[in-house]
Design a protein around this nucleic acid. Structure first.
Lengths: 383, 383
DNA sequence: ATGAGTTGCTGATACGAAACAGCTAGGGGA
DNA sequence: TCCCCTAGCTGTTTCGTATCAGCAACTCAT
């Protein structure tokens, strides 16, 4: 019984044998360097026929070992991807990522193997190995609880883009995020324009960058309007009806909140006090959500351009891949839409002309302003 | 100005130099073969320290080039993944795939680059190259409109598992699917047990395997019960009120339909005739769905164990990868739950003892039986 | 003292593709 | 005739890792 050493994927050497040329010639032909290597059309045809007949496909491992990319973009989320995608905050980002990957002809690697026994996903394994390196570069999603991993990734020279602004001391993290500061600032300015003079701010205790930015935007708007900044960070248990009464008693006519949970509590308390939303109290949620306080009424919430952020992240990543390594970590920063009405999105891209120009590696895209749902002019007597 | 050839990721050679050992020793240590290679604990510590200090991380490309797989499983869908995932028929499969991949420590490659200008995704590019080969093996989702690609994939010896039964002449396609035949048979048998004697079958014209199976199950149930099989395949436009009146006039008291669109038309017609569902007419949908005919009433529908199918597909694929290539395409077939009540899932797996046993490469998992929503005993006079 | 066996490594090689240096055959000019 | 040039390739090395054969040094039994 013959032991058939069957079905090994054909290599360039196999193709070369069949076409009667050398492996180097095959390499030249399949990489489109035929003209540059002075391969005549006849030989090229010979090789291409052999490729077709054998079903040759380049081994990506070998290519990437040799320093060529393998057109693989990694997607690392710090939580599971598919299980939560429909309800997930990150799902829409992934849509953008996939769309842009399709457009650019890259495939996506979903890093799931990085999940430890505790369910947390880390960039570096316990043994120090880093799975991300199978991909040419990666998009990082979610909040890394270990910033040192991010810094290390940068030091290793691995190309990556973080979704959401991230600040790591001593490292220049490339990111694409939403401009929460400007968005919040404009939203609060909108309240002021309606006549509100005391606008409360409800935050959650966990001060990640995206929340710090919102708070900063709030403070900026208050300063610009000459009204007091009244930020309160609470962990939910402290948000009592008594506190609410006190706050409203001081003349607060509007709240901005960092999530819809806090906003929901406000609605609850207002109902208990026979106050109507938005007629007696305006509420803006700084994180967009599908639901509203009551059926038919959506929250007035800051819109996060998730899809566009996902796409921009992939564009930025690819431009980093195409740029020479030295220019990869340029500190240039773009803040698109920082001025009200400025809708032009500063798209990160390698400079088409000179190749020694830094890539804009930190991008903030403008949020869409809150809709009318839970915003109104303050009640008379408070205006 | 010094040209710093900076930030190259450290290699085993670097580690070896620092630890004062050879590269081979480093390889042994980092791969846990220290004991097998008689490396003393002292040397092992030396190496591990160097690994830590340099931040060495194995290069996955080199590793997989050397014959180890790269622990990458491909996921090829014949449509886009993320954009449709929340509402998508395939989404739940992907959840299962991801969960099992996490459990087995594999990463997932989402093939998006295979999308042609027409939006269709093909396995082989025009030039004959096949991106799937980046991954050790792949899970295929959706209906390939070109069966020859599947056959070619099999001939190429590439390990893959199709989700959903697929039949290709001259090729033994490994798959994991739902046992629609048994599920439909049992569902119809259930109707018969309730007293129905004329059960109609509404199909769509496109006869893919999964629909053929349902129809076969229907015919089997009818034959077993000694009642006439009345399958009608229509393209939707033919489903008129007149036809419905005619069908009901012949004494049909129940319908099974291949999708909820057809079932919806039935409800519509029944309403026009002042017939109640399920009191005057029972309806079973052979494809599960979140919605029902009216609020509060879910369809009685065949439940597809999507999550489990996704998981089983990954398990099968991995068992194929671990088996020697010769046994990869074993024709063995498992039909789990073919007998009513048989809930044991025949899990495909490499034989733990002898390695020369074929893998069960074609698996059908049992559907969950339809619930009570739109099923009832036939009205008196028809029973 | 000698051979056998063990311990603890090292050197060489292979994996598949890409890059580059260089070789040969033929033509053309001086 | 000799030299140079060019077209059209080939040979060889390289990337980082895994594996295997094998070698030096030492121990132990004979």
């Amino acid at each position: 019984m013959p032991v058939k050493r069957h079905r090994q994927a054909p290599t360039q050497a196999d193709v070369a044998r069949r076409a009667g040329v050398s492996q180097a010639t095959v390499s030249a032909v399949v990489n489109g360097r035929a003209a540059a290597n002075r391969i005549p059309a006849e030989t090229e045809r010979l090789v291409k026929d052999a490729v077709r007949e054998l079903g040759y496909a380049a081994n990506p491992a070998a290519r990437s070992l040799r320093g060529k990319g393998n057109r693989l973009l990694g997607v690392h989320t710090f939580e599971a991807v598919f299980p939560i995608s429909s309800r997930d905050f990150y799902h829409e980002f992934l849509i953008g990522v996939e769309e842009q990957a399709v457009a650019e002809g890259y495939d996506l690697v979903l890093f799931t193997s990085t999940e430890g026994p505790n369910g947390q996903r880390r960039l570096y394994q316990a043994d120090g190995s880093n799975r991300l390196k199978v991909a040419d570069g990666s998009v990082l999603l979610g909040v890394a609880h270990d910033h040192s991993d991010l810094a290390r990734l940068g030091r290793d020279g691995y190309p990556f883009v973080h979704i959401g602004r991230r600040e790591v001391p001593g490292a220049e993290i490339p990111y694409v995020g939403a401009d929460y500061a400007a968005g919040t600032r404009d939203a609060v300015a909108g309240l002021v324009a309606l006549g509100h003079r005391r606008v409360g701010y409800l935050g959650i205790p966990h001060r990640v960058e995206s929340l710090v930015d919102r708070e900063a935007g709030y403070r900026a708007a208050c300063a610009a309007a000459g009204i007091p900044a009244l930020p309160v960070l609470m962990d939910g248990t402290e948000l009592t009806p008594e506190w609410f009464d006190l706050a409203v008693g001081t003349g607060i006519t509007a709240f901005v909140t960092e999530d819809e949970g806090l906003a929901g509590r406000l609605v609850e308390f207002a109902a208990g006090r026979a106050m109507g939303i938005p007629d007696d109290l305006s509420v803006i949620t700084l994180r967009d959500t599908a639901n509203g306080p009551y059926p038919g009424t959506p929250w007035s919430c800051l819109g996060i351009p998730r899809n566009e952020i996902g796409r921009a992240a992939v564009r930025l990543l690819i431009s980093m891949l195409q740029a020479p390594p030295e220019t990869r970590l340029g500190p240039a920063t773009a803040r698109a839409g920082g001025d009200p009405g400025g809708e032009a999105t500063s798209v990160p891209q390698a400079d088409p002309g000179g190749s020694d120009v830094d890539i804009v590696s930190q991008v903030l895209l403008p949020c869409t302003p809150p809709g009318a749902g839970t915003i109104a002019a303050p009640p008379r007597g408070n205006a």
